[in-house]
């Protein structure tokens, strides 16, 4: 009797296998994963996806490094990918299992932080600039002075996202230095400028999309896609490209070395490299992705958005942030720690 029951159960399990088997734990930035994308993936593969949020690269690194996190996929920024790789936290990708690998756009196929894309595939890329509510300040917003030396209307109202690499890079560009500079004269100016500016800030916090939408924040250092989402809710919000220079960045998905659901993870990685699916990611978070041909599936508003299509006059000011040498990172961390006190 027992055998019959077991056999029946096995049969049933086989029949409904597509709906019941497999799960995947995705560890991603908060408010960054398209629910539509996940629904579609689950509908097609039967794999249940659990999403856990983090708010910074350091948080993600610390949690993954502690071990036993149970996550399968993580989405670090370009400058953190080498750190994850160096610490042995990411598994090299078996490209024979990724049939859509060739869909990665030529620009993003071989990148400095992950040569030949041995460890990660593109998730989204964008820019870091400033977001300003133009009903409060209608002057020139295409400058990092918005947060480094705010106009009178914005003094005491500026938020700065606590993302070290972006903020330090914006400030280095503002005082005329290059990304990853170790020039002490430049860095002294960076520190002094930040320390002086800090008094005119109201907070150093995330959650800018919601707060810009609800007018709780009127000026902040922000990412382009977040600003676009806020503008769709609140027409007064505008995005500024600092003409002194602003960072370009990309977040990429990597497979964790201690992933438990490796097969499911490969299915997901392959799935998001299909242009139609990559477009879903972008339509939700409002950043461009690195998959060729996904534009065709994007809504019209994305194709013309001033936050996504970089205006020609500011294109040259955008600079990709490389992974800085340890020495530079140490100096930046020292400045950052002093600032955050």
């Amino acid at each position: 009797m027992k055998t019959v029951l077991l056999a029946t159960t096995a049969l049933l399990a086989g029949a409904f296998g597509a709906a019941a088997d497999g799960q995947l734990n995705l560890y991603n930035w908060g408010n960054y994963t398209s629910p539509e994308l996940i629904e579609k993936f689950t509908a097609e593969t039967g794999i249940e996806v659990t999403i856990t949020d983090y708010d910074s690269n350091t948080t993600a690194l610390a949690k993954v490094e502690a071990g036993g996190s149970g996550f399968d996929l993580v989405v670090p920024s370009a400058n953190y990918v080498p750190v994850f790789v160096e610490k042995g936290l990411l598994a090299p990708l078996d490209k024979s299992r990724l049939s859509n690998f060739d869909n990665i756009a030529a620009d993003w196929k071989d990148v400095a932080w992950d040569p030949n894309r041995d460890y990660t595939i593109p998730w989204q890329w964008g820019t870091t600039g400033v977001a300003v509510n133009t009903s409060v300040y209608d002057g020139d917003i295409n400058t990092s002075e918005i947060f480094l030396n705010p106009p009178a209307e914005l003094v005491g109202k500026v938020n700065v996202v606590p993302e070290m690499n972006d903020v330090i890079a914006l400030t280095i560009f503002n005082v005329g230095g290059d990304a990853c500079t170790e020039d002490l004269e430049v860095l002294r100016k960076v520190r002094d400028k930040l320390m002086a500016a800090k008094d005119s800030w109201i907070s150093m916090d995330y959650g800018t999309t919601d707060k810009l939408s609800s007018n709780d924040l009127v000026a902040t250092v922000n990412w382009n896609g977040s600003t676009m989402r806020a503008r769709l809710n609140n027409a007064d919000v505008a995005y500024g490209y600092p003409k002194e220079g602003y960072p370009l960045w990309m977040d990429s998905v990597g497979l964790l070395a201690d992933a438990q659901n490796v097969d499911e993870a490969y299915k997901f990685l392959d799935f998001i490299m299909i242009p139609e699916n990559a477009a879903l990611i972008s339509t939700f978070a409002r950043y461009a992705n690195g998959i060729a041909g996904s534009d065709a599936f994007m809504p019209e508003e994305m194709k013309t958005a001033p936050e996504i299509v970089i205006p020609a006059e500011f294109a040259a000011a955008g600079r990709f942030l490389p992974t800085c040498p340890q020495k530079a990172t140490e100096l930046y961390t020292a400045i950052w720690t002093e600032l955050r006190k």
């Binding site: 910074s56 109201i202 907070s203 916090d205 961390t333 950052w336 720690t337 955050r340 006190k341």
Partner: peptide, 21 residues
């Protein structure tokens, strides 16, 4: 406090996160 007006608890957390110390 918005991440700018810290208390000891937040300051300690900062050292284990972004402060990397």
């Amino acid at each position: 406090g918005g991440g700018k007006n810290m208390m000891i608890g937040n300051f300690i957390e900062l050292q284990f996160g972004q402060g990397q110390n």
